[in-house]
Amino acid sequence: MVGPVHYLVLAAILFALGAAGVVIRRNAIIVLMSIEIMLNAVNLSFLAFSRFPLVPVAPMQAGIYAGQVAVFFVIAVAAAEAAVGLAIVIAVFRSRTSVHVDEFDTLKL
């Protein structure tokens, strides 16, 4: 029988894979993809807690959907983040002809 802990462990594994991708990869596009994986892991844990709440919730009130509403906003923010992040990658690639994050040192004096 699958319970809430299964979903939470899956979310933890996905978050760890995304964090590992951010740390070990040099390609900025793959780093952005790994950030998307981490955001999805957080969404998964939101939804798991939404279906299996730890505290009693009164039926027929808007609060039972708090987790799903949070996921909705995370999706919207993730889309905005991907657009701006990829725009930065394009702008850096124009001057450096490289997308390696260890060469992104524009802010250095």
Binding site: A80, V84, L86, A87, A91
Partner: peptide, 20 residues
């Protein structure tokens, strides 16, 4: 959220046009 998405689209266009 709609305001955020508008700002993100405008910001993406502005950033992608310049050189960093």
């Amino acid at each position: 959220t709609s305001l955020l998405l508008t700002i993100a689209v405008v910001g993406a266009v502005v950033v992608a046009k310049g050189k960093i």
